[in-house]
Design a protein around this nucleic acid. Structure first.
Lengths: 322, 322
DNA sequence: CCCTCACGTGGCAACGATGCCACACCGGAA
DNA sequence: TTCCGGTGTGGCATCGTTGCCACGTGAGGG
C-alpha cells in the first residue's frame, strides 16, 4: 500500500476504494497513528497555529481576552501560541520573530509598537489588532468603543450632579487611554461643563503608582467629588488608596471605572463600571482572523474594524455628590 | 553556494570559512531570512513547542499558573501552546491528540482524566502534572502542599477559638480538595477537636453553586463560627452569600480561603487565605519539564515531585468567635 | 474487436533544513 | 613524487505528508 493511497484513504480527498479506506482507517486506529502536523504544514504551507500576543496574562482583562480568543480558535480547529510581552516592545518583536519561524497562519496582538505590526505585515501574516489599534494600515482590528464607554461613565457622573470629576488615565502611547480621555471630554462638552486640566491625572499602568497618583490628585484637588479610573488596574490602585484614606464611598466620593472585572462586584460598595465584553472581544478577534484566513477576501478586502459596544454597569460606588 | 554551506554558516556547526560565514549572515539579514521551524522540527525530531493544558484561564489561579509557565518557557526559548479544557475530559483528550500531532517537546497539564496522562505517556511525551496529581506513574508533578496549607488555615481558626468550622470543598475527584480536607481533619485531630460530618459541605466548582451551598450550610448549622472555603472560586461564592445575608465579618463569622487572589485584599475585611505562590508554581513546572528535556535523566530518573510550600496570609476576615 | 472512460493505485517530487559523506585543494613531510 | 592531514565545500538522502501525473484494469458501446 503506497503512502499516497493511505493519505487519500485517511483524508478522503481523491479516489480511494471503500474497502481500502476502511482497512487503512482500522490500521491507523490500531497503531494510534497521528499525522505529523509539522510535515503537513511544511508541505501545505499552512499551519494550524495562531500567534497570540498579549500584554499581561495576570491582568483579568487580558486573561479574559485570551480565553475568548482561545475558545474561538479551538472551535475552528486552530490552536493558540500565547506569548506575554509585558508591554515590552523588544519582547513583542522577539515573539513576532518566533511566530514567523513557525509560519503561523495569523497573529492576534494587543499591539505595543508599530514595528512589530510592520514586520508581520511585510511577512504577509494576517494580523488582528485587539483592544487597541496602533495603525489602520496593518490588518484588521477588534476594539472596544473607548470614547463611547468613557462618555457613558462621565455622563452618568455628570447627571448625578458631579462637576469636578477626576480622571485617572495611563500615560502610555499605545493604550486605549486616548479614546477614554476623549470620551471624558466629550461628555463634559455635551453637558456644557468645563474641564480643568489638573483634573486629569496621568499615571503608569501599575496599581501602586495609580494609588499614589490618586492620593496626589485628591490632595491637590480636594474639591473633586468623583473619580473615574481609566482601567481595571488603575481602579484597583485608586480603590485601595481610597480605603487607606478611609473615605466613605459613595457618600464622600464617587468612584467609577473602566473594565468590569470580578472584584468590582465583590467589594462594597460595588464599583460602577463599563463592561467591554472582553471574552466576546476575544472571540471576535478569532472570528475576524479566521474569516480572513478562509480567504473570502484574503488580500483584497480593506482592513476591517469591529467595534464592541461597551455597556455601563451602574453599581453602588456612584451617587449624588453631597 | 549550497544549502549545506548556508546551514553551516548560520548555525555555526561544522566548517565554514569566516569570510563565507559573514557573507551568508549579511545576505540572510538583508532578505529577512527566518529558518522554518516546521522543517527544522521535522528533520530534527524536536520541537520548540510545549503543550499547556489548563482548566480555566478566567480563573486567576490558572491565569497566574499559565503566566508562570509561559515566563519559564519563553526564557528558555520554548513557547506555549495553551488550551483551556474547562475541566472537561473530552476536551482534554482532544488537546492531547493535537499536541501529539504537533510533536510537542512536552506537556504541562492540570490533569482531569487519567486517560489523557496515559496517552501522553505511551506516546513518549514528557509530562508535568501541575497543581494536582492524578497518578504517580505518569511523569513529574509540581504541586502545592494542600494538606499543610489547609492545616495552617484550620489551626489558625482553631487557635482563635473556633470549634465549629464549616468547610466548603469541591466534590470533583481530580481536584486538590482531598488534600485540603485531610489538612482540615489533621488540624482538628492535632487540637483534639472532633469534626462533625455535616460541617463539611461539598459543592461544585462554581461561585453561584458555592453561594447556595454556603447558605444551606449556615441554615443547617447556625452554630458555625467560621467558614473555610477550599479555593478562590468557592470563596467568591461564599463571600457573596455572606454579604447578601448581611453578616458582619469577622464579628459574626470568620471566613478564610485557599488561593490568594487579588480581590481578597481589596474587599473589607480582607480575606485570610493561603497563598500557593501560583506564578512560581508555573515557573517550576517549566523548569522541571525543561530539566527532563535537557536529558540529564530523560527516561531513567524516577518521576520527580516538587512541592511548593504554601503560606498563610492572615487578614481581617478571621478573628475570635463571639 | 477496439476504443473510451471511469475508477483506483503507485511513483515521484516537493516543502525547508540538516547531517553525513565524498571530494577538492593546499602545505608539508617522507 | 607520493602521501597525508587539515580545511572547506557540495551532493544527497532524509524527516512525513500531499498532490500531480501516469498507468492499469474492467466494463460498456460503437
Amino acid at each position: 500500500m503506497s503512502p499516497s493511497t493511505v493519505s487519500r484513504a485517511l483524508s478522503g480527498k481523491g479516489y480511494a476504494a471503500a474497502e481500502v479506506r476502511s482497512r487503512v482507517r482500522a490500521a491507523a486506529a490500531r497503531i494510534d497513528y497521528i499525522p505529523d502536523a509539522n510535515a503537513r504544514s511544511l508541505r501545505n504551507r499552512s499551519s494550524p497555529s495562531i500567534g497570540v500576543l498579549i500584554s499581561d496574562l495576570r491582568n483579568p482583562f487580558y486573561a479574559d481576552l485570551a480565553a475568548g480568543v482561545e475558545q474561538g480558535l479551538r472551535s475552528a480547529g486552530y490552536h493558540m501560541i500565547l506569548v506575554n510581552d509585558d508591554g515590552d516592545a523588544d519582547e513583542e518583536l522577539l515573539a513576532v520573530q518566533a511566530f514567523a519561524a513557525i509560519r503561523v497562519a495569523g497573529v492576534i496582538v494587543t499591539p505595543v509598537s508599530i514595528q512589530a505590526l510592520q514586520r508581520l505585515h511585510q511577512q504577509g501574516v494576517h494580523v488582528v489588532q485587539a483592544d487597541r489599534q496602533l495603525s489602520e494600515r496593518y490588518g484588521d482590528a477588534v476594539l472596544g468603543d473607548n470614547e463611547t464607554g468613557a462618555e457613558l461613565v462621565t455622563r452618568h457622573l455628570l447627571e448625578l450632579g458631579h462637576r469636578r470629576i477626576g480622571l485617572l488615565i495611563d500615560e502610555t502611547k499605545w493604550s486605549s487611554g486616548a479614546g477614554r480621555l476623549a470620551g471624558y471630554r466629550a461628555a463634559h462638552a455635551a453637558a456644557g461643563v468645563p474641564v480643568d486640566a489638573d483634573l486629569i491625572a496621568f499615571t503608569s499602568v501599575d496599581a501602586v503608582a495609580a494609588g499614589a497618583t490618586t492620593g496626589k490628585l485628591l490632595d491637590e484637588r480636594p474639591d473633586v467629588t468623583a473619580l473615574f479610573a481609566g482601567n481595571n488596574v488603575l481602579a484597583e490602585g485608586a480603590f485601595a488608596e481610597l480605603q487607606r484614606r478611609g473615605l466613605r464611598l459613595p457618600e464622600q466620593l464617587s468612584l467609577a471605572a473602566y473594565d468590569d472585572v470580578s472584584w468590582m462586584s465583590l467589594v462594597r460598595p460595588a464599583i460602577t463600571t463599563v463592561s467591554q465584553h472582553t471574552f466576546d472581544m476575544g472571540q471576535q478577534c478569532a472570528e475576524v482572523l479566521l474569516a480572513r484566513l478562509s480567504g473570502d477576501h484574503a488580500k483584497d478586502g480593506a482592513p476591517q474594524v469591529v467595534r464592541i459596544k461597551p455597556a455601563l454597569r451602574v453599581r453602588g460606588s456612584t451617587a449624588h455628590p453631597r
